[in-house]
């Protein structure tokens, strides 16, 4: 029973990771940029959700505001920060991104205060029974949202013309361009979708914890890097598997290895160990 419960908690955490990490791995696949500031967008989504819900009293409205707004913010980051430095060596964008992320966190601290905010009224309550397992409604919603959205993304990328253009651009930007695909539009789309997914994760985490704080993105931001490396940078399916695997491993690790290292170190131990054996990641191509 304990095992089942731990696995389930791991899957909840893992699907959260997946929602954030997919945007990151998409950006890497397209531009070879490690987009650390992505987790800042996740925090932004969470803050917008709490602020709008408290002001307007509607969680639905808050989500409908947060998700597209954060998507647009992601596009702005691409346009203003990454596009002008695309031709530089990769570490330039990485360091710039870390700088932006720190600025975003400090910005949240200045605007919303250092102590964090909560919903005035907890908007979602109750629980769902799954056989012998009991889940909070929010936890169930997290799993459903992650699988639903990522499934929709897979259909979108596989079945629509825009999706095909997107995949073509990831595979070979120059060839895609010579076939008449507007690769710049693809990049904007990429940032919009990735950031919007991070915002969804932000809204869900805000609901799960009923708490948002300026630094809530710190741990995810760096852990997401570990995940996308494990998944083979740019590999969406690998990223999903790595997210879920890490979620489950952490929930077991905290119980069985918690006295040696804390939860967040487990991810990096796994990461370093895997990279030493397979430098291209678990699911990367050699």
């Amino acid at each position: 029973m304990l095992y089942l419960d731990l696995t389930l908690q791991g899957l909840i955490q893992g699907s959260m990771y997946a929602l954030i990490a997919v945007g990151l791995t998409l950006v890497y696949g397209l531009l070879r940029i490690l987009h650390v500031a992505h987790a800042g967008l996740f925090t932004l989504g969470a803050y917008i959700a709490v602020t709008v819900t408290n002001a307007a009293g509607s969680l639905l409205l808050a989500a409908l505001v947060a998700v597209p707004l954060v998507g647009l913010a992601g596009m702005a980051i691409y346009r203003l920060l990454y596009e002008p430095i695309l031709h530089r060596p990769p570490f330039v964008a990485l360091i710039a991104s870390i700088g932006l992320f720190i600025c975003m966190e400090e910005g949240f601290r200045l605007v919303f205060g250092p102590y964090g905010n909560s919903f005035d009224l907890s908007p979602v309550e109750g629980s769902v029974q799954l056989g012998a397992l009991s889940l909070q409604t929010v936890e169930a919603a997290t799993i459903v949202a992650a699988f639903g959205l990522l499934g929709a993304l897979a259909v979108f990328a596989g079945r629509t013309r825009i999706g095909v253009a997107w995949r073509a651009t990831v595979t070979d930007p120059e060839m895609a361009q010579s076939f008449g695909i507007d690769t710049v539009k693809v990049r904007y789309l990429n940032f919009f979708i990735g950031s919007a997914l991070a915002a969804v994760a932000g809204v869900l985490v805000a609901l799960l914890n009923n708490f948002v704080e300026p630094t809530m993105g710190s741990v995810p931001s760096y852990k997401m890097l570990a995940i996308i490396v494990l998944g083979g940078l740019g590999n969406v399916k690998g990223t999903l598997v790595a997210s879920l695997a890490l979620g489950v491993m952490e929930s077991f690790g905290t119980i069985y290895a918690g006295h040696i290292m804390d939860r967040d170190a487990i991810a990096f131990l796994f990461l370093v160990a895997v990279l030493m054996v397979r430098p291209q990641g678990l699911f990367g191509k050699a």
């Binding site: 490690l34 290292m261 990279l275």
Partner: peptide, 28 residues
């Protein structure tokens, strides 16, 4: 020795991982 196996972006993440690992272990 790790830097002999992984490069650039991967090395950045590995070194970052070492940092978090150090902290995570020392804390406990």
């Amino acid at each position: 020795i790790a830097s002999l196996r992984v490069r650039a972006d991967f090395l950045a993440i590995t070194t970052m991982g070492v940092g978090f690992l150090f902290l995570g272990v020392v804390r406990q």
